[in-house]
Nucleic acid binder design. Structure first.
Lengths: 230, 230
DNA sequence: GTAATGACTTGATCAACATCAAGGTCATCC
DNA sequence: GGATGACCTTGATGTTGATCAAGTCATTAC
């Protein structure tokens, strides 16, 4: 039996659907897993074809599309590396793929046998619960992130970032360590380094924070909190 | 045995964790479910308290926070109506809550007995798989939505919206019905009606689309697609 | 008929940010 | 010691899109 490249195993392990599967069970799943190298434009599966596998994209881009009457093709999803696709179809026990999957670029995908995976989950409610837990946690995180990014302006997003990292109930001064170059944090909250710098300066001018090399001193947490009307 | 108000049952059913549970199983879960009315500021549970239930917020806002050494309180999450919380703790089988939950406003929450819920899932791998499937689908959707909203400017978001709704592979003209007032669609893609109107006009000027009352005629799908570098 | 309403458009103005360009500081390397 | 390169800051300028205000239709109300 051929063994899956450790890098690929790693890739699977870092996906929520496989993260918490125990060793033996994971080995079982690996038995049903193989690597597909796709050329740009190549079709991975198409509508109505029996749904026997789902997939984890390692590299490249995959387009999921739907063919309606008269050949109209609607793009349902574009898959990026690290994500699984068609797992929803599998988990719902559908007979055939209701969509088409086509490589938009050269791509590497792992083809995971549905039956093996389902077998593992079916036999281990523990694994199931863990997976549900992971997905649920990820959902919470994503919704938070979305909320933050939808905060209208740069100051708000910065403040929200600072408060997330400290958030006393108290009114005391607090250090926020920024364990990463400022430009990284800037991109995390979706502003340019320049704007980030200027925003920090503004908050400093208003005597709300003080900026150091390795950390930011939040001088007035409660006032900042007010600015977010939380 | 007291029966849970149908409205509340409805609320549960529209959450992914309960959506696909069959009738009997759902009844079992309901046996372990009760309503809590919280006053603003009231504490629902606190750190280290045994974790016997998780919750679905029906109305109000709940703050989830973490108490570290020396009384520093860090806000981990703000829960909004429709969402569950503490389910991750439960599903991971943790003994006690690692966080505090406090009502930020008057709030209505459903308290769901962990043991009952887990029992149901444990006995039905089918239900488990359905739940995983739902969560997974929701994740895909959210990630898509995030991507769209992170598209830098209004034209991009509008184009992305249009393409999502048609997306021929072909180059032919296509109608996109907009089954909702324009201002609704505008808010969907996070622009004001004014900007929406102007953006449509621009695309019309470039001969890419044509605007009608009930639909938009996309005259050059492939050119639009290029503009998104997909 | 006239008035009132609601959805959309259009124009003018303004604030927020990105971008471009030019320094400044600091650590590392030769 | 001087050169190099990362990272950050600062200033000038341009674009984008929100906001305010006014105007167009079409529909419904009186």
């Amino acid at each position: 039996m051929q063994v899956l490249n450790p890098d690929f195993q790693e890739a699977m392990r870092s996906n929520f659907l496989f993260m918490d599967i125990n060793k033996e069970d994971f080995a079982t799943i690996l038995q049903g897993t193989s690597v597909c190298e796709l050329r740009a434009g190549e079709i991975l599966f198409s509508q109505k074809q029996p749904a026997t596998d789902f997939f984890l994209l390692v590299e490249g881009k995959i387009k999921i599309s739907l063919l309606s009457f008269e050949g109209t093709q609607k793009v349902v999803d574009i898959i990026n590396p690290g994500n699984t696709f068609a797992e929803v179809i599998i988990l719902n026990g559908m007979e055939g793929y209701p969509v088409n999957a086509k490589a938009l670029s050269n791509a590497t995908v792992l083809r995971i046998n549905a039956q093996k995976y389902i077998q593992v989950l079916s036999n281990s409610s523990e694994a199931c619960l863990k997976v549900i837990s992971r997905l649920s946690a990820r959902l919470h995180w994503l919704m938070n992130e979305m909320e933050r990014l939808s905060l209208h302006n740069a100051s708000y997003r910065l403040i929200s970032y600072l408060l997330e990292d400290i958030h006393h109930e108290s009114v005391e001064e607090t250090k926020v360590m920024l364990g990463a170059p400022k430009r990284i944090i800037a991109s995390r909250i979706s502003v340019t380094p320049e704007t980030f710098s200027r925003t920090l300066k503004n908050l400093t001018k208003d005597d709300l924070i003080e900026v150091f090399d390795e950390h930011i001193l939040v001088k007035n947490p409660s006032k900042l909190r007010e600015m977010l009307f939380i």
